[in-house]
Design a binder for these strands. Sequence first.
DNA 1: GGTCACATCACGAGAATTGGTGATGCCTGA
DNA 2: TCAGGCATCACCAATTCTCGTGATGTGACC
Lengths: 235, 235
Amino acid sequence: MSRETGAGRNVRSTIMPNLSQSHPIVWIVEDHEILRKNLQRLCAPARGLNCTGAFANAETMIIALRKTAASEQPHVLLMDVGLPGRSGLEVLGDVIQLAPDCRIVILTVFEEEKKISAAISAGASGYLLKTAHPEQIVDAIHEAARGGSPMSPLIAASVVKLLAKLTKPSQPVALSPRELEMLSLIVEGLTAKEMADQLGVSIHTIDSHTRHLFKKLDVRSRAAAVARALRERIV
Amino acid sequence: MSRETGAGRNVRSTIMPNLSQSHPIVWIVEDHEILRKNLQRLCAPARGLNCTGAFANAETMIIALRKTAASEQPHVLLMDVGLPGRSGLEVLGDVIQLAPDCRIVILTVFEEEKKISAAISAGASGYLLKTAHPEQIVDAIHEAARGGSPMSPLIAASVVKLLAKLTKPSQPVALSPRELEMLSLIVEGLTAKEMADQLGVSIHTIDSHTRHLFKKLDVRSRAAAVARALRERIV
DNA sequence: GGTCACATCACGAGAATTGGTGATGCCTGA
DNA sequence: TCAGGCATCACCAATTCTCGTGATGTGACC
């Protein structure tokens, strides 16, 4: 997807070099030197980009970022998160702290769900497979600068799968309205007495409903009931 | 995914005997007639696609799907989920039930987070904005058939935002390792005695830890502790 | 009209939880 | 060396929860 849509984006930059100020500032973190140089070349004014920093590792990038004035901070940070595993995602927090508006695009080889979700939690915006074509990378950087989250379809598939897992309703248990109410109040942390007061019924009633609820949920304690309720999104 | 099928059915099999077999079968649901015809034209063998169904609404599509042999079911279903709001996402469950291997690509106008997450929960794979270019749509269908989840960067941004919200660690409470263990076991539904047995310590110890835990979590019951733990992803 | 699910209420016993208070030993960092 | 955090254990009292076994009334459904 994302063909070269940017036809009219910045063809004029070759004619009017000053316009490069409006080009997204791009920083690159990539340990492989040749790849880094290639990426750097790719983010040229001719493509509407302005690469002002390229680093071999995340640490030096952070150090540089610390010394950079807000106006010169990158709009998009293209980060290789390779096999090493370390040194990549850990610094995302620092980046966000130092440059809250910087969009982070991860460049990765594998599509491990774990790493992807970790990267998202850490604040990354886009995810590209290293197999992406140069034009796709350029497009992605522009999309990211524009507030989008460019990602390779295969990575997106992982993200979708994850999100589906996290949001699926899954309410196989049929609870009566009253039982559902019990469950909600228990989850709220109320004691049986408080529930009775709040609902204006006797504690015995609460007790009875609760026991039916337990039977349906197949649990033997309020704590376990809460666990089931929250995990299966019943409440 | 599962492309092995498609044996007969193509009129042009006389002309291009075997080629179209490898083309993903595409179905389209789009109420706007002109748009539908355009999409239909787009999914042509020349682009490596094989559109065998185009419907004005989801209901007729489902009816058709019910009558379709597994081997002729679509590999990719392109669905317009327009303003009506209804009639779109509700049927996704049916589609998945009838054709589990069918990848569903949503074509939408807006990027509402709610609808997007609803669609994902319902089982959609890809999400395109209607502003996408024809070639992007074709690309997306191929990506979907290949198991990917093509999505417009803006939509992906919503998805990422959602996922980030759902997976953010948020552990402002500093618990000791032992207290964390208590919490985990409580969430598992164990009683204090069971915890004591499992950990090989006295129930008094469990008791004490649990009370410290409660103090830190600012709760007064195991149920409430479980609620906090799960809601804030402490466990 | 009978059955069934549901909401309501009740008693009683035993188990579990919670809340004080206090003590001992271990380890770590200042 | 010493304070402080942590894990461990203990006793005691009050409260709460869990469970068994009831009961009544109401509405839905066949």
